[in-house]
Design a protein around this nucleic acid. Structure first.
Lengths: 224, 224
DNA sequence: CAGCATCCGCTTTGATACTG
DNA sequence: CAGTATCAAAGCGGATGCTG
């Protein structure tokens, strides 16, 4: 992109990561750690392959992304964030918090991939009772299951099913997101297609405590 | 802009404010409060006038900006952020913190306007001794002076000179920024053109205490 | 003058095809 | 798998003109 040419920290940041797709590439790398080109391409539905290649080059150039050859027997190129790149997490966090309410608008054409939930899960959920036995929540709401586990007061998110989940949530993505973030009450969520197995009361242990999210905020009137 | 079409809070946020210039328009409105079209245009050097008009329309559409007619005798249109728009402040804050180190690269072509300092001043400086007499710092480093004053532990920034400043800083923008944020030691700053009148020791009262910014971080080796 | 709209050349993006 | 090549469409930047 052409530089804004302004001696301003915000403008300089946007010079580096303000291009179309760039921050979503960072999102993918924050979620996945190291990733292959193909992983990034499938995690960013809609991106043109030449753009992905060009953005990765620019991000490498600006010190946000590191590219390296995976050791044998993998023998493929991998991309990962540098420390400077991981420093973008607060930017993604702020954008995600601001954008959260926008998920309420029904958008039937929107793509959804379960691993996208890993970022809000790590940034916005936590374990309020870290001294009790760890718990495992399995989400079934997209292309693959996602498993959340508590560890040291924080939440880990990993793709795949859990062996012995304490709670399984199954339903439309918007509803699962809403019930996880506490913007949708469980009974409301069930009316919108949420199904669960296990102890739904465990949710309170990980939901954000911060007020500010009013109940049903995430669900627009047309849905609710 | 074309939507990313992804059910992800970050992608939705970028759908709304990811367009070129959009977040810089929000920056101007965060700094200025209410602003006229012409104020925005001069505060955003390089933007095409039709783009500014189009972005303002989009921001109004998405509930970020409110447009209204100023009461007589002003009789001009004013733009200001809605509450939803002011909620973008953490996004600008995160971007600015990440972009701060990029200001170190010398960029002779870059434009600079003093009022841009008002945002980092409010977000990153504070008064660590709010019970003492308020202080006033005048910055002379761009198109117009900027005056910082302490109030209730926070920092107000207003354009214009101070009547009786406790400290006046004068010098190149990068140097003044560095010395304010504490990434440049006063003696180093003086070697790079900083001049001051008054009590330079007052700086410690408002500089960020957060570590993380290492001395001279803001000044690249080629400058320092 | 403030607040745009129009026009035009240039750059960026998106979609698809192709390659080592 | 990991891209490059190609080309049409959309977006942007700059200049200019219009309107209250």
């Amino acid at each position: 992109m052409r530089s804004y040419g302004q001696l301003c920290a915000v403008a300089k940041a946007l010079d580096a990561v303000g291009d179309r797709w760039t921050l979503l590439i960072v999102r993918e790398l924050l979620i996945r750690g190291a990733a292959r080109y193909t992983d990034l391409h499938t995690g960013l539905p809609g991106i043109a392959t030449n753009l992905l290649a060009e953005r990765l080059r620019e991000l490498e150039q600006s010190g946000v992304v590191r590219r390296y050859d995976a050791p044998p027997p993998v023998a493929t190129a991998l991309f990962e964030l540098t420390e400077r790149g991981r420093d973008l997490e607060p930017v993604l966090d702020a954008l995600g918090r601001w954008g959260g309410p926008l998920l309420a608008e029904p958008d039937p054409a929107a793509a959804f991939q379960t691993h996208w939930l890993a970022l809000p899960a790590r940034l916005r959920l936590s374990d309020h009772e870290p001294d009790r036995r760890p718990i495992t929540v399995e989400l079934r709401t997209g292309d693959e299951p996602l498993t959340l586990t508590t560890r040291d007061g924080r939440i880990d998110a990993r793709p795949g099913a859990a062996e012995t989940p304490d709670l399984v949530l199954d339903g439309p993505p918007q509803i699962v997101i809403g019930v996880l973030l506490g913007t949708l009450e469980p009974d409301q969520a069930q009316a919108h297609g949420l199904r669960h197995e296990g102890d739904i009361a465990l949710l309170r242990r990980v939901q954000p405590r911060t007020p500010g999210a009013r109940p049903n905020d995430l669900i627009s009137p047309t849905v609710a």
